[in-house]
Design a protein around this nucleic acid. Structure first.
Length: 187
DNA sequence: AGCACGATGCTCT
DNA sequence: GAGCATCGTGCTT
């Protein structure tokens, strides 16, 4: 078994570096005796209170406090009344920043003796949380097997040439910050 | 295959 | 009370 659980040091770095390095890492979700496994394929970086696209640009509020927490924590919020967005807190404690997980691939549902690929599309930040049974109950917890949500490095290498960047989705209101190429995905 | 639009509820002003 | 880090449907090309 070459699988290695990723700890908080990985997230204690520049948000854009973390977002890029998360590509190819493996997301695990354990829920009710079922283990879900998927490869992260698309992320976005939200970095600091100056970033007008970042929720923390409004300062420390009940919702954004978790972004000031130690790296490796989970930030989840509800958007448009029905979709949960999954984020991981980055940077040292008290620096507000997070990576949004926008896409996964190769989603597997692993039962006791039965491994199968789920015939569902899992691109899109709202779809993946739905399929992985992720909701606000995980907000503010730390990434860890005990939590039921964690990341592992299984040695999947994404060649640099296959890593594409783009502007973040749905943040046109953020002016010049909307043009930052802080979205990363496997082409 | 590419729009436009509505669903639906939390968060902050 | 307005707006939102979305998605599926139902329409038009």
């Amino acid at each position: 078994m070459t699988s290695k659980i990723i700890g908080q040091d990985f997230f204690n770095r520049d948000t854009r570096t973390v977002a890029k390095d998360l590509l190819g890492k493996v997301l695990y979700r354990q829920y009710n005796n079922t283990l879900y496994r998927a490869i992260i394929t698309e992320t976005e970086a939200y970095h600091g209170k100056e970033d007008l696209a970042c929720h923390c640009s409004k300062g420390k509020t009940p919702r954004t406090t978790v972004m000031y927490d130690a790296p490796g924590h989970i930030y989840i919020y509800l958007i448009y009344g029905m979709y949960y967005m999954l984020n991981f807190v980055t940077m040292p404690k008290d620096f507000p920043a997070a990576v949004l997980i926008r896409g996964i691939s190769n989603l597997q549902k692993i039962d006791i003796e039965d491994t199968k690929n789920l015939p569902v599309k899992t691109d899109g930040p709202g779809k993946l949380t739905k399929h992985l049974k992720i909701d606000k109950s995980l907000n503010k917890l730390a990434l860890h097997p005990d939590t039921g949500l964690w990341i592992a490095n299984e040695g999947i290498i994404i060649p640099k040439k296959q890593i594409a960047t783009g502007t973040r989705i749905g943040v046109a209101y953020a002016k010049v910050w909307a043009e930052k190429p802080w979205r990363y995905y496997i082409s």
